[in-house]
Design a protein around this nucleic acid. Structure first.
Length: 251
DNA sequence: AAAACTTTCAACCGCGACAGA
DNA sequence: TTCTGTCGCGGTTGAAAGTTT
Protein backbone atom coordinates (compact mmCIF):
# COMPACT_ATOMS: atom_id res chain seq x y z
CA UNK A 1 0.00 0.00 0.00
CA UNK A 2 1.32 3.42 -0.90
CA UNK A 3 2.19 5.73 1.93
CA UNK A 4 -0.13 8.50 0.79
CA UNK A 5 -3.02 6.12 1.10
CA UNK A 6 -2.32 5.86 4.79
CA UNK A 7 -1.35 9.39 5.68
CA UNK A 8 -3.36 12.26 4.28
CA UNK A 9 -0.51 14.59 5.00
CA UNK A 10 -0.53 18.25 5.88
CA UNK A 11 -3.67 20.31 5.50
CA UNK A 12 -3.82 22.78 2.66
CA UNK A 13 -4.97 26.37 3.16
CA UNK A 14 -8.08 25.57 1.22
CA UNK A 15 -8.93 22.69 3.49
CA UNK A 16 -8.34 24.89 6.51
CA UNK A 17 -10.58 27.53 5.05
CA UNK A 18 -13.38 25.08 4.43
CA UNK A 19 -13.09 23.69 7.89
CA UNK A 20 -13.17 27.08 9.58
CA UNK A 21 -16.19 28.09 7.56
CA UNK A 22 -18.17 25.02 8.40
CA UNK A 23 -17.20 25.04 12.04
CA UNK A 24 -18.45 28.60 12.05
CA UNK A 25 -21.69 27.41 10.56
CA UNK A 26 -22.36 24.28 12.51
CA UNK A 27 -20.26 24.63 15.61
CA UNK A 28 -17.39 22.53 16.80
CA UNK A 29 -19.28 19.44 17.81
CA UNK A 30 -20.55 17.41 14.89
CA UNK A 31 -17.25 16.65 13.34
CA UNK A 32 -18.28 13.82 11.11
CA UNK A 33 -21.13 15.89 9.78
CA UNK A 34 -18.83 18.84 9.19
CA UNK A 35 -16.33 16.64 7.40
CA UNK A 36 -19.03 15.41 5.08
CA UNK A 37 -20.90 18.61 4.31
CA UNK A 38 -17.70 20.55 3.80
CA UNK A 39 -16.55 18.06 1.25
CA UNK A 40 -13.43 17.34 3.20
CA UNK A 41 -14.62 13.81 3.56
CA UNK A 42 -15.84 12.33 0.32
CA UNK A 43 -18.04 9.27 0.47
CA UNK A 44 -16.16 6.18 -0.53
CA UNK A 45 -12.84 7.88 -0.15
CA UNK A 46 -10.69 7.97 2.90
CA UNK A 47 -9.59 11.56 3.15
CA UNK A 48 -10.34 13.95 6.04
CA UNK A 49 -12.44 12.25 8.64
CA UNK A 50 -14.42 14.03 11.30
CA UNK A 51 -11.77 13.01 13.70
CA UNK A 52 -9.10 14.53 11.55
CA UNK A 53 -11.13 17.74 11.23
CA UNK A 54 -11.56 17.98 14.96
CA UNK A 55 -7.85 17.54 15.50
CA UNK A 56 -6.98 20.19 12.98
CA UNK A 57 -9.42 22.61 14.57
CA UNK A 58 -8.39 21.95 18.14
CA UNK A 59 -4.66 21.91 17.54
CA UNK A 60 -4.22 24.50 14.87
CA UNK A 61 -7.21 26.47 13.65
CA UNK A 62 -8.96 27.44 16.84
CA UNK A 63 -8.84 31.23 17.20
CA UNK A 64 -8.04 31.05 20.90
CA UNK A 65 -4.78 29.27 20.37
CA UNK A 66 -1.55 30.75 21.53
CA UNK A 67 1.34 30.00 19.28
CA UNK A 68 5.04 30.09 19.74
CA UNK A 69 7.30 29.10 22.56
CA UNK A 70 6.00 28.31 25.98
CA UNK A 71 6.68 30.95 28.56
CA UNK A 72 8.70 30.07 31.67
CA UNK A 73 5.50 30.29 33.72
CA UNK A 74 3.78 27.87 31.41
CA UNK A 75 6.74 25.53 31.51
CA UNK A 76 6.72 25.64 35.27
CA UNK A 77 3.03 24.93 35.38
CA UNK A 78 3.33 22.01 33.01
CA UNK A 79 6.00 20.44 35.19
CA UNK A 80 3.93 20.98 38.31
CA UNK A 81 0.76 19.63 36.81
CA UNK A 82 2.51 16.68 35.27
CA UNK A 83 3.87 15.80 38.69
CA UNK A 84 0.33 15.94 39.94
CA UNK A 85 -1.61 14.28 37.14
CA UNK A 86 0.90 12.39 35.05
CA UNK A 87 0.34 12.12 31.32
CA UNK A 88 -3.16 13.58 31.42
CA UNK A 89 -2.32 16.03 28.71
CA UNK A 90 -5.80 17.28 28.02
CA UNK A 91 -6.33 17.90 31.69
CA UNK A 92 -3.07 19.79 31.94
CA UNK A 93 -3.95 21.73 28.81
CA UNK A 94 -7.12 22.95 30.45
CA UNK A 95 -5.01 24.84 32.91
CA UNK A 96 -3.02 26.50 30.18
CA UNK A 97 -5.51 28.47 28.11
CA UNK A 98 -4.53 28.64 24.49
CA UNK A 99 -2.28 25.60 24.68
CA UNK A 100 -3.31 22.23 23.35
CA UNK A 101 -2.73 18.83 24.80
CA UNK A 102 -0.67 18.03 21.74
CA UNK A 103 1.54 21.03 22.29
CA UNK A 104 2.08 20.16 25.92
CA UNK A 105 2.75 16.56 25.07
CA UNK A 106 5.34 17.61 22.55
CA UNK A 107 6.87 20.05 24.97
CA UNK A 108 7.12 17.38 27.62
CA UNK A 109 8.86 14.99 25.28
CA UNK A 110 11.41 17.61 24.38
CA UNK A 111 11.80 18.59 27.98
CA UNK A 112 12.41 15.07 29.29
CA UNK A 113 14.78 14.26 26.49
CA UNK A 114 16.74 17.38 27.23
CA UNK A 115 16.87 16.56 30.89
CA UNK A 116 18.01 13.01 30.20
CA UNK A 117 20.79 14.34 28.02
CA UNK A 118 21.84 16.82 30.64
CA UNK A 119 22.29 13.98 33.06
CA UNK A 120 24.28 11.91 30.63
CA UNK A 121 26.52 14.88 29.95
CA UNK A 122 26.22 17.00 33.07
CA UNK A 123 27.04 20.62 32.64
CA UNK A 124 28.77 22.71 35.29
CA UNK A 125 26.45 24.00 38.04
CA UNK A 126 27.25 27.59 37.18
CA UNK A 127 25.96 27.13 33.67
CA UNK A 128 22.74 25.49 34.76
CA UNK A 129 19.84 25.00 32.44
CA UNK A 130 17.35 27.72 31.77
CA UNK A 131 14.69 25.66 33.43
CA UNK A 132 14.14 26.40 37.08
CA UNK A 133 13.37 22.77 37.81
CA UNK A 134 16.79 21.53 36.89
CA UNK A 135 18.31 22.96 40.01
CA UNK A 136 18.71 19.66 41.81
CA UNK A 137 21.87 19.69 43.84
CA UNK A 138 22.62 15.99 43.49
CA UNK A 139 22.53 14.16 40.21
CA UNK A 140 19.52 11.87 40.02
CA UNK A 141 19.47 8.82 37.76
CA UNK A 142 19.27 9.49 34.07
CA UNK A 143 15.73 8.24 33.72
CA UNK A 144 14.32 10.30 36.55
CA UNK A 145 12.89 13.74 36.34
CA UNK A 146 13.93 17.08 37.74
CA UNK A 147 10.90 17.51 39.94
CA UNK A 148 11.63 14.32 41.79
CA UNK A 149 13.45 16.14 44.47
CA UNK A 150 11.48 15.17 47.55
CA UNK A 151 11.39 11.46 46.80
CA UNK A 152 8.63 11.87 44.23
CA UNK A 153 7.73 9.05 41.93
CA UNK A 154 8.71 9.28 38.31
CA UNK A 155 5.67 9.85 36.17
CA UNK A 156 7.38 9.83 32.85
CA UNK A 157 5.62 7.55 30.39
CA UNK A 158 3.83 5.73 33.10
CA UNK A 159 0.71 7.77 33.16
CA UNK A 160 1.50 8.42 36.80
CA UNK A 161 0.66 6.33 39.80
CA UNK A 162 -2.73 7.86 40.37
CA UNK A 163 -3.98 8.64 36.95
CA UNK A 164 -3.29 5.36 35.22
CA UNK A 165 -6.42 3.80 36.61
CA UNK A 166 -9.16 3.73 33.99
CA UNK A 167 -11.84 3.92 36.63
CA UNK A 168 -10.34 7.02 38.08
CA UNK A 169 -10.06 8.52 34.65
CA UNK A 170 -13.69 7.90 33.95
CA UNK A 171 -14.87 9.40 37.17
CA UNK A 172 -12.58 12.37 36.71
CA UNK A 173 -13.85 12.98 33.25
CA UNK A 174 -17.39 12.79 34.42
CA UNK A 175 -16.56 15.17 37.21
CA UNK A 176 -14.87 17.50 34.76
CA UNK A 177 -17.86 17.44 32.53
CA UNK A 178 -20.20 18.15 35.36
CA UNK A 179 -18.05 21.08 36.32
CA UNK A 180 -17.96 22.21 32.76
CA UNK A 181 -14.21 21.80 32.85
CA UNK A 182 -13.63 20.51 29.38
CA UNK A 183 -11.55 21.80 26.50
CA UNK A 184 -14.68 22.85 24.71
CA UNK A 185 -15.65 24.97 27.63
CA UNK A 186 -12.22 26.51 27.81
CA UNK A 187 -12.42 27.35 24.16
CA UNK A 188 -15.79 28.88 24.66
CA UNK A 189 -14.39 31.02 27.40
CA UNK A 190 -11.47 32.07 25.29
CA UNK A 191 -13.74 32.85 22.41
CA UNK A 192 -15.74 35.22 24.52
CA UNK A 193 -12.74 37.45 24.94
CA UNK A 194 -11.28 36.98 21.54
CA UNK A 195 -14.71 37.16 19.92
CA UNK A 196 -14.85 36.68 16.22
CA UNK A 197 -11.89 38.95 15.58
CA UNK A 198 -9.48 36.13 15.30
CA UNK A 199 -11.77 34.25 13.02
CA UNK A 200 -12.29 37.33 10.93
CA UNK A 201 -8.55 37.71 10.68
CA UNK A 202 -8.34 34.14 9.60
CA UNK A 203 -10.86 34.72 6.88
CA UNK A 204 -8.96 37.73 5.72
CA UNK A 205 -6.02 35.47 5.06
CA UNK A 206 -8.01 33.94 2.29
CA UNK A 207 -9.05 36.07 -0.59
CA UNK A 208 -11.80 34.90 -2.82
CA UNK A 209 -9.59 35.27 -5.85
CA UNK A 210 -7.41 32.51 -4.52
CA UNK A 211 -10.12 30.03 -3.87
CA UNK A 212 -13.06 28.87 -5.86
CA UNK A 213 -14.70 27.78 -2.65
CA UNK A 214 -16.95 30.38 -1.08
CA UNK A 215 -17.60 30.45 2.57
CA UNK A 216 -21.14 30.32 3.88
CA UNK A 217 -22.24 33.29 5.89
CA UNK A 218 -21.01 33.39 9.44
CA UNK A 219 -24.29 33.56 11.20
CA UNK A 220 -23.43 30.68 13.33
CA UNK A 221 -25.03 29.52 16.51
CA UNK A 222 -21.61 28.22 17.35
CA UNK A 223 -20.34 31.62 18.38
CA UNK A 224 -23.43 32.45 20.34
CA UNK A 225 -22.79 29.20 22.08
CA UNK A 226 -19.55 30.63 23.44
CA UNK A 227 -21.30 33.06 25.69
CA UNK A 228 -22.15 30.23 28.01
CA UNK A 229 -20.23 30.82 31.24
CA UNK A 230 -19.36 27.23 31.76
CA UNK A 231 -15.78 27.38 32.78
CA UNK A 232 -15.82 26.72 36.46
CA UNK A 233 -13.22 25.01 38.53
CA UNK A 234 -12.48 24.30 42.08
CA UNK A 235 -10.32 26.63 44.06
CA UNK A 236 -7.20 24.59 43.88
CA UNK A 237 -7.37 24.15 40.15
CA UNK A 238 -8.16 27.79 39.71
CA UNK A 239 -4.92 28.72 41.39
CA UNK A 240 -3.03 26.54 38.98
CA UNK A 241 -4.44 28.15 35.90
CA UNK A 242 -2.58 30.78 33.98
CA UNK A 243 -4.55 33.92 33.29
CA UNK A 244 -5.52 34.67 29.75
CA UNK A 245 -4.22 38.20 29.93
CA UNK A 246 -1.28 38.89 27.64
CA UNK A 247 -2.28 35.89 25.68
CA UNK A 248 -3.04 36.76 22.14
CA UNK A 249 -3.46 34.46 19.26
CA UNK A 250 -1.22 35.11 16.34
CA UNK A 251 -4.13 35.42 13.97
C1' DA B 1 28.49 24.19 0.78
C1' DA B 2 26.69 20.00 1.88
C1' DA B 3 25.95 15.96 4.47
C1' DA B 4 24.65 14.16 8.91
C1' DC B 5 22.32 14.62 12.88
C1' DT B 6 18.79 16.60 16.07
C1' DT B 7 14.65 18.90 17.28
C1' DT B 8 10.04 20.40 16.65
C1' DC B 9 5.42 19.85 15.81
C1' DA B 10 1.50 18.51 12.86
C1' DA B 11 -0.90 14.53 11.96
C1' DC B 12 -2.34 9.79 12.48
C1' DC B 13 -3.75 5.60 15.07
C1' DG B 14 -6.00 2.75 18.42
C1' DC B 15 -8.81 2.50 22.15
C1' DG B 16 -12.39 3.56 25.39
C1' DA B 17 -16.51 6.19 26.55
C1' DC B 18 -20.88 7.79 25.55
C1' DA B 19 -25.34 8.73 23.33
C1' DG B 20 -29.02 7.45 20.55
C1' DA B 21 -31.54 4.05 17.81
C1' DT C 1 -29.71 -4.86 26.08
C1' DT C 2 -27.08 -4.51 22.11
C1' DC C 3 -25.38 -2.18 18.16
C1' DT C 4 -23.60 1.71 15.74
C1' DG C 5 -21.77 6.16 15.11
C1' DT C 6 -19.18 9.72 17.03
C1' DC C 7 -16.05 12.00 20.02
C1' DG C 8 -11.98 12.66 22.91
C1' DC C 9 -7.65 11.18 24.76
C1' DG C 10 -2.94 9.50 24.94
C1' DG C 11 0.74 7.44 22.35
C1' DT C 12 3.40 7.40 18.25
C1' DT C 13 5.17 8.65 13.74
C1' DG C 14 7.31 11.22 10.18
C1' DA C 15 8.33 15.42 7.53
C1' DA C 16 10.33 19.77 7.80
C1' DA C 17 13.28 22.96 9.93
C1' DG C 18 17.26 23.87 12.40
C1' DT C 19 21.96 22.90 13.94
C1' DT C 20 26.38 20.87 13.86
C1' DT C 21 30.29 18.88 11.67
Amino acid sequence: MALEEIRKGPWTEQEDFKLVCFVGLFGDRRWDFIAKVSGLKVAGEDNRTGKSCRLRWVNYLHPGLKRGKMTPQEEKLVVELHAKWGNRWSRIARKLPGRTDNEIKNYWRTYTRKKAQERKHPISPSSSSSNCYSSTTNNPPADSLPFQEAGEVSYYDTGGPIVSSPTRKKSEEKEDREKGDSMDDIWKDIAVSEENNAVAQFYNCFTDENYSFTCPQMTSPAWEFYSDPLWKMDEEENEMTLPMSNQHSSW
